[in-house]
Design a protein around this nucleic acid. Structure first.
Lengths: 133, 133
DNA sequence: CGGTATCCTGACCGATACTG
DNA sequence: CAGTATCGGTCAGGATACCG
């Protein structure tokens, strides 16, 4: 009898029908990444998230929050007050993905100079080849 | 005198104009993630990538490869033979991101059962609330 | 305050056909 | 084999207005 872990293992993700793709889509979505990173910093209210994440619209913020909530990564706590008070935080599951996403985001921020350098060189080479042809 | 690392640090990514967003977009794009994971397994030819990554079109594969190549994450080696022979592999930079992306992908695959379970519960609750209203 | 509903545009992306 | 070119549809996502 194989364990679930052994049965699923690697490579499923490469299949077009793999349900993991859906979750991956939410997590790696334009605002999903940033949302997870911010929420790693602690509980936030809707308006706080909206302010911290530059460029996000209310619509997309709400939608992304809903995705992650349905995937069990984000916890939504609503207090029945007037005016309304809603708090978002990471579930234990969300904390796990969050850490991995942050690791990726941090790496990119930290190594951006090296990447920009490569980009410069590439466009320089292309400009030369342009002149030759 | 601050080091570059200290100067950049955290939070730049949260600003809408941060150039990191562009790289993040390429890496976390629909096919970027899968591409990096596959290339972690070693050098591949175009057709091999196309076969391994279920559901990707030639167009999007070529485009994603080009993005990652320009970001210095993927190395493209072309041999002047007939028929053409092109090999793609990860640069040292690409290896770094690749490992982090794989960590994320692996986590999702492995924990998918737990996530699906949450999803089920959510839709069950919604069905109940539907009946009440 | 914390959303939802609606409309709308551009970008993404797949299908097809063609090329070195 | 390894792409590029073009077309067209879908959809992410922004703007605006409105609601509990």
């Amino acid at each position: 009898m194989k364990s679930i872990a052994e049965t699923i293992r690697r490579g499923e993700l490469l299949s077009a029908e793999c349900p993991s793709r859906e979750v991956l889509k939410h997590v790696t979505s334009r605002w999903g990444v940033l949302l997870l990173v911010v929420l790693l910093g602690g509980t936030h209210r809707f308006s706080e998230l909206h302010r911290k994440i530059g460029g996000v619209s209310e619509k997309m913020l709400a939608q992304t929050l809903k995705w992650l909530e349905q995937d069990g990564l984000v916890l939504r706590k609503s207090y029945a007050t007037v005016p309304p008070h809603v708090e978002y935080s990471l579930t234990p599951l969300g904390l796990e993905v969050g850490k991995r996403v942050e690791s990726l985001a941090d790496w990119i921020e930290f190594n951006l100079p090296r990447i920009m350098e490569v980009r410069q060189q590439t466009s320089a080479v292309e400009a030369m080849e342009e002149r030759v042809s």
